[in-house]
Amino acid sequence: MTDATSVSQPRRLSNADQNWYRFTRNPTALIGAGIVILCILAAIFAPFITPYPEHVGAVVDFRSRHLPPSADYWFGTDNVGRDIFSRTIFGMRISLLLAVVVLGIAVPVGTILGLVAGYFGGWVDIIIMRITDIALAIPALVMALAVAAVLSPDLINAMLAIAGLWWTWHARLIYAITRQLRSQEFVEAAETLGAGKMHILFREILPNCVSALAVKTSLDCGFVIIVGASLSFLGLGIQPPTPDLGTMVASGSDFLPDYWWESVLPGCAILFVALGFILLGDGLRDLFDVEEIR
């Protein structure tokens, strides 16, 4: 007779394995991740995959101006004869860099302020959250326009202008989660055992906020790219001849509808990149069972 204890039991999947399995069965998340990875790889290897990388700079070829999409110029050429496809791929670099820097500033600032306000409460809560409420009352795009108009329009100032108010959304999100978690048993147990405040904030509460932060950050990447393109469209972002998707849409709009590709195709690139991050965020929200994030 076979000993029951000797029968090998099936290996129990870890949480990471379960999450990966669920992620690979989520079409929305897979499509979003595929788009994001494709855009990142295209931006990294832009000098090697674009047919005319020299057209990124101040190149003029009036003999090739306003050419429609073709085998030689996949997205056509602009009003000075530069290849729009090459400039679009390099423009993705600017958009992705903008999102990384803005959220690299906004997420840590908002997370720390939300943790502190939610855990300590009292006058700390009042001061931090009232400042957050005031900042939330100002539309991010309006503030970005004001800052970019006062300062010289360039990439650095565009990043600072957008990051100046973007932290508020993350502060409000982490504040709400921390308020719920601070009365949980594992937090009370850590306090009873004499754990320090920093240990409780960053070792007990923060790990339970990671899933919501991942979803929010992914969704925000798409919106930051759109806001950055809006600034450039209005002439307050990246300045020519540096390729930027918003600037290319604005320049091409002067020649609509005859030369539609000069504006429409860079605009489709903005949509493509932003859609990838938004789909990825929706997929992560379903994966982590995170409630609706506004």
Rank of each mutant, 00 (worst) to 15 (best):
W166T: 02
S183D: 15
L141N: 00
V187C: 14
L173I: 09
S152I: 07
T192H: 08
Y175M: 01
I177R: 05
L151S: 07
I134L: 15
W169C: 03
N157L: 05
I156D: 08
G164L: 15
G164Y: 00
S183R: 15
G194D: 09
A135P: 09
A176S: 13
A190F: 10
G196F: 11
V150A: 01
A171L: 14
A146Y: 01
I134V: 12
F186H: 11
A140Y: 02
I156V: 06
T178A: 11
E188H: 06
E185W: 13
I177C: 02
W169P: 00
A144C: 08
A137I: 04
A171F: 11
P139M: 04
A158E: 02
W169R: 10
I156N: 10
G196W: 06
A146V: 08
W167G: 11
A140I: 04
A190R: 12
E185I: 13
L151D: 02
A189T: 08
V147K: 02
V147D: 02
L165R: 03
L181M: 15
W166S: 07
T178Q: 09
L193A: 04
A146I: 06
S152L: 09
L173D: 02
W167Y: 07
L160K: 04
A195S: 15
R172I: 10
G194T: 04
L173Q: 02
F186W: 13
R179W: 11
A140K: 07
I156G: 01
L165F: 05
A137F: 05
L141M: 04
H170S: 05
V150F: 02
L160P: 01
S152F: 05
